Simulated assay, not measured.
Amino acid sequence: MSPDDPPITLTAFAGFRRIAHGTKAEVLAQLRELGDVPSCLVFDDQTGAQLDLDLREMPDADTPHAGHEHRDEAPRGVGRPKLGVVAREVTLLPRHWDWLGRQPGGASVALRKLVDDARRVHADRDTVRTAQEATYRVMTAIAGNLPGFEEATRALFAGDEQRFGNLIEAWPIDLRAHLQKLSAPVWSRA
């Protein structure tokens, strides 16, 4: 996790009701407080990915990556792990390797610069796409059978905030509020 990444938060739903929200440790604590925890779905708020939590798990708050094992991370070892540099395989055509080899600092430095430039240039587009996908994942898992689901999905990906809002207006309040929160970057950057 880089310093630029937003804090990882989770939200748990039992049916259409939000029953927990916060960091992984906070959500685990809230679910434990409920005692006989109803069947619930837990989502990563940034990606909309559904997670399986073990209520017996005790995350170590002092560990920087505690509670983040649901993120895909490359195995450590090759590269400079202390600096966060991780080696992975990249497949390019010979002309690409030739060009990269002629760049100051070599292929790795050139690729890092290209990626950083692309992240800056496409930051708004990537933020919108990420918010749309997260909202869609949660909608699909919880609201797939609700009236207007398909039309709301179309409005979400079309960037039509008013239509999206109108279509989910009759949905349960906790679900509606969560979907509005997840989709907010779509509307603010459209």
Rank of each mutant, 00 (worst) to 15 (best):
A134F: 00
W171H: 02
V109A: 10
R88D: 11
A123W: 06
W97E: 13
G35I: 11
L41V: 12
R32L: 14
D54C: 13
M139D: 12
R76W: 12
R56E: 15
P7I: 13
A158C: 12
T140N: 15
A66T: 07
N145M: 15
T153Y: 07
Q46A: 13
L100R: 04
E57I: 07
M58T: 10
R80P: 01
P81Q: 14
H65Y: 11
L111T: 01
P94A: 06
A107L: 05
R112N: 05
K24L: 04
L111I: 09
G84M: 15
K113N: 13
D5Q: 14
A134M: 06
P172T: 05
L93K: 08
R137E: 00
Q103M: 13
A107H: 05
I8K: 07
A74V: 11
L41Q: 03
T11N: 05
D54A: 14
E33D: 15
W171Q: 11
Q30R: 10
G15A: 05
L55G: 12
H70I: 00
D126W: 10
Q162K: 10
G105L: 03
T11W: 03
D126Y: 08
A61I: 01
M1L: 14
R119Y: 12
Q103T: 06
V37E: 06
W97C: 07
D44P: 00
E169C: 07
P6G: 13
L28Y: 06
L41G: 00
R163Q: 09
V78F: 13
P81H: 14
V42P: 02
V78E: 15
R102S: 04
K181W: 05
T140Y: 08
E73C: 01
H65W: 13
P104S: 08
